[in-house]
Amino acid sequence: MVDFVFAALAIITIVSAILALEAKEVVYGAVALALSFVGIAGFFALLDAVFLAMFQLTVYVGAIAVLILFTVMLVRREQWLKIKEGVYRTAGVVAAVIIALGLGYLVYASAFTHATPTLEQAPFTLLGPLILSDYWAALVALSLVLASAVIGAVVLAKLERD
């Protein structure tokens, strides 16, 4: 039994993920990628992770997708259309099919098919205390990583001035 909302979200996410890679224009690909992120946020909301869904919308759709879109528009040239995939296409399709079948069979044969939905759920207000107590070291490291990444991005983007 598949819920209608779940099926719609799955179709949106998977089709736009394919479209992100296969669209003729990279700009359309970037927009499709943003749509795929929105679908994932819908899955998070469906899994009762409401805060994470908002986080995904803010960071992924609001920041990363827009950043990608800006970059695509900034460096767009017609010659991109001439980049051809060639011989790697078959290898890519074969690898994807093998991975999908292998992992799919693994999931199908696992004990997770018996995992039943439960009605009890954790409030998202636990998230803040958990991050600030158990994972405080990861949080500090993450802030350093983010700061250095942003500084590095600025330095890289100004490379031409040297």
Partner: peptide, 14 residues
């Protein structure tokens, strides 16, 4: 799994 396979396909092909 399907999303992962799509991602691997893109990483190999593009």
């Amino acid at each position: 799994v399907v999303l992962f396979a799509i991602g691997v396909y893109g990483l190999v092909t593009k």
